[in-house]
Design a protein around this nucleic acid. Sequence first.
DNA 1: GCCCGAAGTTAACCGCATGAACATTCCAGG
DNA 2: CCTGGAATGTTCATGCGGTTAACTTCGGGC
Lengths: 215, 215
Amino acid sequence: MAATSAGKTYHHGDLRNALICAAVDLAGEGGPERVVLREAARRVGVSPTAAYRHFDGRGELLRTVRTHARRELAASMERAAAREPGADDPVLAAERRVTALCRAYVGFAVEHPGLYRAAFCVPRPASACEPGPARPPAEPEIRAYTLLREALEALTALGTARPGARPATGAAAWSAVHGLSLLLVDGPLRRLSAQGRRVAVEATLAMVVSGAGSD
Amino acid sequence: MAATSAGKTYHHGDLRNALICAAVDLAGEGGPERVVLREAARRVGVSPTAAYRHFDGRGELLRTVRTHARRELAASMERAAAREPGADDPVLAAERRVTALCRAYVGFAVEHPGLYRAAFCVPRPASACEPGPARPPAEPEIRAYTLLREALEALTALGTARPGARPATGAAAWSAVHGLSLLLVDGPLRRLSAQGRRVAVEATLAMVVSGAGSD
DNA sequence: GCCCGAAGTTAACCGCATGAACATTCCAGG
DNA sequence: CCTGGAATGTTCATGCGGTTAACTTCGGGC
């Protein structure tokens, strides 16, 4: 009855995980809105309500998928940064790290649109727009953002190659890559050619790396 | 039977518009996912299926709302730009126009989160992620973007105040304000204090105005 | 006046989220 | 080895939302 010893009997043995996988697949195929409890259950070969033994409802399933997607995004960024060749000049190295991270961020979004959208979705309980006094536990941290922010701080501390220009703030940079990703993946820039896309990415990178901080 | 002469009889007289208004209200209250055919009909006091006489389905209703929202966004930006005092220095004036537009953009998003989200939603037919050869008629143009782009082009043509720095590309700038808006309205930056929000906005503005173009 | 088509209506089907009550297994004690 | 309860699944049932089909009213043109 260990997690992996699933038989084909009444008890699945690892339903929770199986459901998560199915849900992640769904998200990959069609984004968060495609993550449907019933469908996930169907794929796993179990009745819809079985899921409730492991999740509070669709909301929690989606939140789990989101966590997964965020992890993948961050991992993808780290891999890319690690692949980046070092440089003698520390400033250049720092700049490269930033651009590598950003490129990977947008790259992930473009390659896995569904997952990317799932990574930043908001499971809405149905209604509720103006939040009451509720204070959900302040999300756990988003690695992708942390990576970006730290890389930028490092770069800022070193100064830039070009005098007078300063790298963007973490939040500003995140805004840029996030916005670009969504515009490309889901938004009006969706149908840009690969070429056009590349141009937009480069322009955004330039803005982020040598854009001004707030002064 | 002119558009506005609605009685309380069998025929509504101006259902289409009434539905649009209701739908826009809904979007304002809870974003695109809140735009529900049945609810709109309910609010107008008509049977759900009546809507099908005027819209192809929920998708078209949503698209109509989106158009409306985009118009409002653009209008809000233009109003803000118009309010901006002129300046003797044309460069300064151009910079001011850009920042005014951006501020208004983000401001609109923050003040009308639901509408803003609706303005950039994608009515999904249920499934379909990888586009076939389909080529929807290439959306009509998004004024908010055009305004931003043109203001930036003007600024670029003039050169910036600070030497060496160049304003961002239209796409990059749009990415920045769009991303920031979503992060603030719907995303992980959602629960920033008004203060924190302001800081993020200023940082982003600085990045956009004096960030580097692609070189 | 009559007839047609536009604009509404009701009834019905399907999928989805969810809750309640019932069924099966597994496993800890005895 | 046997047994009872906790886990884990299952079946029913409710309610909501999208959408279709078939029927009903009304407003006008002839």
